[in-house]
């Protein structure tokens, strides 16, 4: 499970892309495409390879005026699933 001090990184070959034909954000990865809903897009867009997961959830909490704990709980599942598929790396 990803913790507040962990730094999530989108590795080379994984990028966020605006799919203009389907009018949605997607995550492009080796031979896979994942459709991103608004919440998933918001979290992944914050990942810059420097900030910790804790800092990211706090920034989102402020922007969307929602409890940080809630955002952390919701996005940890997504990041965990991406990590299992090797679409995301975590530096601790």
């Amino acid at each position: 499970m990803i913790g507040p001090d962990d730094i999530p990184v989108l590795p080379r070959g994984v990028r966020i892309h605006w799919d203009k034909v389907r009018a949605t954000w997607v995550l492009l990865a080796p031979e896979r495409t994942v459709t991103l809903d608004a919440a998933a897009h918001a979290v992944l867009s914050e990942i810059d390879g420097a900030r910790s997961f804790g800092a990211i959830t706090e920034a989102l909490a402020e922007r969307y005026d929602a409890p940080a704990a809630q955002i952390a709980a919701d996005s940890a599942g997504l990041l965990g699933a991406l990590r299992d598929r090797r679409f995301l790396e975590v530096v601790s």
């Binding site: 799919d19 492009l28 031979e31």
Partner: peptide, 9 residues
């Protein structure tokens, strides 16, 4: 790309 292809092999 115009048609909607995202992945090119």
């Amino acid at each position: 790309a115009e048609l909607g292809v995202l992945q090119l092999h």
